[in-house]
Design a protein around this nucleic acid. Structure first.
Lengths: 109, 109
DNA sequence: ATTATTCATTGCAATAATACGATAGATAAT
DNA sequence: ATTATCTATCGTATTATTGCAATGAATAAT
């Protein structure tokens, strides 16, 4: 049916999946990397850096803003996008929780 | 056009995005958590744990196998799915690289 | 007031992802 | 041989995602 059955999973599982989905596009990775490394965070700069149309970049920014990873501060006529420290740390923690789990080596015995 | 322009991004950006996409569904998170925590890794066990049809679970397992996160060892008539340590460590490292980057606080100045 | 700049939104087309019933294949058990 | 068990795949329906041109909204500059 093309629609994820979110209600049958835990809140945590859905949150991780949603955060992962936000990272599941190279353009959004590029945006995040740029905001992490450079000080410039104006939308127009990102449009220049990315080989995508302005409308497409705007859409990716919207998604990252929606999940909370980015904040968009209007500074007319520009908009400055920044990484939201709180959500970023949450994502770091939630991914760390999974990746730091020791993998059971007793598999397939 | 519904198709990601992978060729215009770096290999690393595409790899992170692909790994993130593999994690971008609560069912696949549940599968990974189960394989991390429990020793049982037979496909049938996962079908019982997940509130999804067998065909759907099989499809999610296929995706995780395709990206390399899981290995599927045939042990007739069962199939044992295990976390692939190598790829798992790669994913851990690649996500860590991003999340351990210090966020520039000089944003929007 | 008019024009230019910056960014968001809308509308559309194309492709990808999600879900499941039905079926097939392979082995074990009888 | 027949039946049962386990898993993969196919076909199909539905929804989501990606991408961009065109347009709109809001402010700055002239």
């Amino acid at each position: 049916m093309g629609v994820t059955k979110t209600q049958v999973f835990t809140e945590q599982q859905n949150r991780i999946a949603d955060l992962a989905k936000a990272l599941a596009h190279p353009a959004r990775i590029a945006i995040i990397q740029h905001l992490l490394r450079e000080k410039s965070c104006v939308c127009g700069d990102l449009v220049e850096v990315l080989p995508l149309a302005q409308a497409t970049v705007s859409q990716h920014l919207k998604e990252l803003k929606q999940i909370g990873i980015l904040t968009g501060e209007i500074n007319p006529p520009r908009v400055c996008y920044c990484i939201n420290e709180t959500v970023w740390q949450e994502a770091k923690a939630i991914f760390g929780e999974i990746f730091n789990t020791e993998v059971s080596l007793k598999c397939c015995e």
